[in-house]
C-alpha cells in the first residue's frame, strides 16, 4: 500500500475497522485514485498481517460506504464518487483525533480560543515541514 500500516489488535476498535480507516485515509490522500485497483482480500490479508475474514470485512465496508466498486473476477476499484466526497470524508476521519483533543481541552478547562491556539500551531508546524524543500 506504500503506507506504513500499524494496526493495534488490543485497542477497542475492531481490526477490520482500523484497516478500513487506513484504506480510507489512503484514498483520501490520493494514494489510490479513482479507477485504481485495491489489493485483493488475499493480498491485503498478507500485507496487513490479518486473517482473511478481517481483510474481507474491511473491503466490504468500503464497498458499503460507496468508496469502492467490485468488478467480478477482476478486483475492487476506487469509485469516482470516493474522491468527489473527499472533503466530507476527510473531515469525518479527522473527527476521531479531534474529539480526543476536545475532550482533553474541556477536562483541562481551556477556552475555545486556548484550544484552537494549540491546534493551529500544530497545523502550521506540519504545514511548514511538508513544504520545506528536501535536500
Amino acid at each position: 500500500m506504500g503506507v506504513l500500516l500499524h494496526l493495534n489488535p488490543t485497542s477497542g476498535t475492531p481490526l477490520y475497522r482500523q484497516l478500513a480507516n487506513s484504506l480510507q485515509q489512503a484514498i483520501a490522500a490520493g494514494d489510490f485514485k479513482p479507477g485504481d485497483r485495491l489489493p485483493s482480500v488475499r493480498e491485503l490479508a498478507r500485507t496487513a498481517g490479518v486473517n482473511m475474514l478481517t481483510a474481507a470485512k474491511a473491503l466490504q465496508s468500503l464497498e458499503t460506504e460507496g468508496l469502492t466498486e467490485t468488478r467480478r473476477g477482476v478486483g475492487v476499484f476506487v469509485s469516482v464518487r470516493a474522491v468527489e466526497e473527499s472533503l466530507e470524508r476527510k473531515q469525518e476521519l479527522l473527527k476521531d483525533s479531534a474529539s480526543q483533543v476536545a475532550a482533553q481541552a474541556v477536562n483541562f478547562g481551556l477556552t475555545e480560543g486556548q484550544t484552537l491556539f494549540v491546534v493551529l500551531n500544530e497545523y502550521r508546524r506540519f504545514q511548514n515541514e511538508r513544504t520545506r524543500p528536501t535536500n
Binding site: 488490543t10 481490526l15 498481517g49 486473517n51 475474514l53 478481517t54
Partner: peptide, 9 residues
C-alpha cells in the same frame, strides 16, 4: 489473549 486479537476470527 493479545495474540488472539491479532489473528482469531
Amino acid at each position: 489473549l493479545s495474540d488472539v486479537e491479532r489473528i482469531a476470527s
